[in-house]
Structures are given as structure tokens and as C-alpha cells.
């Protein structure tokens, strides 16, 4: 029973990070109806930037985290400007946007390889103090608590921002109808750029947490999560922020439980992707998607 409990707790932490990653992914989709396939590369760059700040600049993780998150956001602006803005007026912007964002991802990965080498790197020991609690046979570390707290904080901030702040309302307006938003005097291009900033900052934050949690970073660490992130946002309903949060948790739990029950890591993704396939057949709009309408 404790083994299962432990797995549930682990799944919760991993799922939280998936949620964070997927929320950024789904935000851009909700506003623009396009997939930004450079999101996973920005996730990697966020993690590696934080590592550089801790290791080479000697900052504490508390200072490195916001700085690297901001940097990831700036990379998002760059992705938007280079890979998406020039294509916006083209009839096939959907296909070509996929490829141009992949091109950006490849360039980021090459940069990361150039700077950090192709091997795995890790945060120096003691970046986050190792504190372990045992609650009724379930082990929880300080790091896990901090990760969950960070995820929850960022999610709550984002949700409130979208709901109450002026820019959040503008984002929802642009997601609903770009032309109408423009007629209402909203700076649509600015809102789109800000959405990319927000999305990529969240992705970068997820990368930092991931690197801390698994104690390993590498230029290609974004690859496995890219596909999982896609699965999560479909599961939750494309473009839905609460859906992506729930989807991430569901995905993390299913992954951990599948391994625990089957005893083999080869089956880790089986349940999740079979579920995804079934959802696409039965309810393509996802768990929280509302038909073909979108929400930000």
C-alpha cells in the first residue's frame, strides 16, 4: 500500500511539471491555433540557463530561477518574431509554422550543444538542500515540495492573470476572435508576442524544475517531453489551460502507475497514448474542451 502511495505522490510531482510545460504549449495554441514545436527546446534552454547561472555565475537557485525563466520568455519572443510573424499572412501558415518552429528548435539544440557539450550535466550538489520527510512510509523531499509550490504558484498567477488583468483579458479576446479584438483597439501583434513570452517562460520554468528533479540536463532533454506535452494538451482539450493542468497530472500519474503495476518501463507510455488515441476517436475536443470553441 505504501509503495502505491509513494508512486501516487511521485506521479503528482512529475505530473505537475508536465502540467507546467503543457500550459505554455496550450496557451499559444489557444490564441493562435498553431503548435509551437520549439517549446520543448525553450524548456531545455531554460534548464540549461539556470544551470549556467548557478554554476558559472555563482548565483543561488532562488536568483537563477526567475532570471532563467525570463530568458526563456525572451527566447519565446524570438521564436515568435523569426518563425511565426513572417509566415502569418501565408495560406499554409499552419504547416510552415510547424516546420519553422522545428528549425528554431534545432538551432537552439545546436546552441545548447555548443555551450554545454552533448553529454548530461547536473546542478552542483547542494543547489537545493537535501531534506527528507517520511510520512507514514511515504518519502517526500524538500525539493519535491518546492517544485509543487512553484508549479501551484505559477499556475495560480497565470489563471488570475488571464481572468483579471487587462493583458489577460486581451489574450482571451484575441483567442476568441482576432479581427474583433483588432477592431476593439487591442494591439493584436503585441498580445500574441506577450503570449509567446508567457508560454515560453512557463516552459523554461518547467525545464529548470525538471533538471532539478531528475538531477540531469542535456541539450536533447526536451525531446521526450515534447511528445508528452502534445498528448497532455490534447487530453485536456486543445487550448484549455485548466485542461492542460488536469491532463498533465493524469499523464504523470498514469505513467508512474503503469510502471509500478506492469513492472516494466517499456510500457510507461502505453496507457497514456492508448487513452489519447481513444479520446481522439470518442471525444476529439478533449476532457475539458468545449466542442470547437476555444478558451484561453
Amino acid at each position: 500500500m505504501n509503495v502505491l502511495g509513494q508512486q501516487l505522490v511521485n506521479g503528482l510531482f512529475i505530473g505537475g511539471m508536465y502540467s507546467l510545460f503543457a500550459v505554455g504549449y496550450t496557451l499559444v495554441f489557444g490564441v493562435l491555433d498553431i503548435l509551437n514545436l520549439a517549446h520543448a527546446a525553450v524548456f531545455t534552454m531554460g534548464g540549461l540557463a539556470a544551470l549556467w547561472l548557478v554554476q558559472s555565475a555563482g548565483l543561488s537557485i532562488w536568483a537563477a530561477f526567475p532570471l532563467a525563466t525570463l530568458l526563456a520568455g525572451v527566447l519565446g519572443l524570438l521564436v515568435n518574431q523569426v518563425a511565426f510573424v513572417p509566415l502569418r499572412r501565408r495560406p499554409d501558415t499552419y504547416f510552415s509554422g510547424l516546420i519553422s518552429s522545428i528549425a528554431m528548435a534545432i538551432i537552439f539544440e545546436a546552441l545548447a550543444m555548443q555551450i554545454f557539450g552533448a553529454h548530461n550535466v547536473r546542478f552542483p550538489a547542494g543547489t537545493v538542500p537535501v531534506v527528507i520527510w517520511r510520512l507514514g512510509g511515504i518519502t517526500i523531499t524538500l525539493l519535491q515540495v518546492e517544485i509543487l509550490a512553484t508549479v501551484v504558484l505559477l499556475m495560480v498567477t497565470l489563471t488570475q492573470l488571464l481572468k483579471r488583468a487587462r493583458i489577460g483579458k486581451a489574450i482571451r479576446a484575441v483567442a476568441e476572435n482576432q479581427r474583433a479584438a483588432r477592431l476593439l483597439g487591442i494591439n493584436v501583434d503585441g498580445v500574441i508576442a506577450f503570449t509567446f513570452f508567457l508560454s515560453s517562460a512557463l516552459g523554461g520554468a518547467a525545464g529548470i524544475l525538471f533538471g532539478l528533479y531528475f538531477d540531469s540536463l542535456s541539450p536533447d532533454m526536451g525531446r521526450p517531453i515534447e511528445l508528452k506535452g502534445l498528448a497532455v494538451i490534447v487530453l485536456g482539450g486543445m487550448g484549455s489551460v485548466p485542461g492542460a493542468i488536469l491532463g498533465g497530472l493524469a499523464f504523470g500519474l498514469s505513467e508512474v502507475l503503469t510502471v509500478a503495476i506492469s513492472g516494466t518501463s517499456n510500457l510507461r507510455d502505453a496507457v497514456a497514448f492508448t487513452m489519447l488515441f481513444a479520446i481522439m476517436l470518442l471525444r476529439p475536443s478533449g476532457i475539458l474542451g468545449k466542442g470547437r470553441t476555444r478558451e484561453a
Binding site: A103, I106, A110
Partner: peptide
């Protein structure tokens, strides 16, 4: 070199997409 080749690969891909619609 690995990274350079990867980078040029990405750059060519980007240029084709941007300038040869």
C-alpha cells in the same frame, strides 16, 4: 563538428521555409 552541423541544418531549414514558401 556536431553542433555546427546541426545548427546549419536548422538554419537552412528556416531559410527555405521563410524565403521559398
Amino acid at each position: 563538428a556536431g553542433p555546427l552541423r546541426l545548427g546549419i541544418n536548422g538554419l537552412i531549414l528556416l531559410l527555405v521555409i521563410l524565403f521559398l514558401p
